[in-house]
Nucleic acid binder design. Structure first.
Lengths: 148, 148
DNA sequence: ATCTAATTGCGAACCATTTGCAATAAGCTG
DNA sequence: CAGCTTATTGCAAATGGTTCGCAATTAGAT
């Protein structure tokens, strides 16, 4: 049993759930990936290890992991399927390049600033911040412009 | 013809589109509402003026208006239908109260700060910023806590 | 090894959204 | 105003992501 599976088990057991094959498989995929994956992509990767795992189990595992705070769900654009990734704090937000399609994380204290501002001046207690910035990444801006 | 319809017409004509009944109806609803509406809600309101307007026409009108920059599409939570509202600048972001469900706008320069930071330090040129803060609004925090 | 409830696979259901197509209507043009 | 062309519409069916009901399976406790 890998280290990451051990972590999963303790999280599950603590919340009164069972450690099962499909859950382990889904977890390994999400935990082992740097990127944001759709349920279908996760299912595909899972099936390469165990072809019997069903798509609905993938969805169910992801929903459970989300509840437990193990993974994070995000919408990276209207009409796009939901993407999942390993849980990360709110301060880490998403930068999406509309040219190459890559989605990166960016960490800054700006999100924290927003939270304190809202709390201090407007009595709004933020529990979750979702920030998606769409635009052109440095590399794509270069290649799309005729430079000196 | 109302003032708002006139605005719509010039935007449509300028882009080579026609001013039609369904488009006017959809526009009046969106422009006349303070809140974020789903396509279904818009269709319902439209039908009270003209019951022959079809849901697909509502979708098509909204898609067109979005292209033209007249309305803004937003995801206010995973597994929720898309919501539309009159176009507004990025600096105006969304505050969603998880208790009362209300979605408000909040305007601040924080979004602009993020844009300049990304541009100056990371070469990332933002074209659109979507910021959704979920939490408890001032009123709900009060009523949910036993205060002094 | 046995037992029970949680979990799974499966297929069907669901919901928001999109699409193909024939019928309609907007806005020229004369 | 009538005629014409093409964009737009209504309809119904298709789509795609996600959820659900249920019988079969399996994790983990005894």
């Amino acid at each position: 049993m890998t280290e990451s599976t051990r972590e999963l088990r303790s999280a599950l057991v603590e919340a009164g759930h069972r450690l099962t094959g499909p859950r382990i498989a889904v977890w390994e995929v999400v935990a082992g990936s740097e990127s944001h994956l759709t349920a279908e992509e996760i299912a595909e990767a899972v099936r390469s290890a165990d072809p019997t795992v069903n798509l609905s189990s993938v969805y169910r595992s992801l929903a459970l992991f989300t509840d437990l705070g193990l993974v994070r769900e995000s919408n990276l654009g209207a009409n796009e399927a939901t993407h999942w990734e390993l849980a990360h704090p709110d301060e880490q937000f998403h930068l999406k390049c509309k040219a190459c399609g890559r989605v990166e994380h960016h960490t800054g204290d700006l999100v924290t600033q927003i939270e304190s501002h809202l709390s201090d001046h407007h009595g709004f207690k933020a529990s979750r911040v979702e920030l998606l910035v769409t635009g052109m990444c440095a590399e794509c801006s270069q290649s799309h412009s005729s430079n000196t």
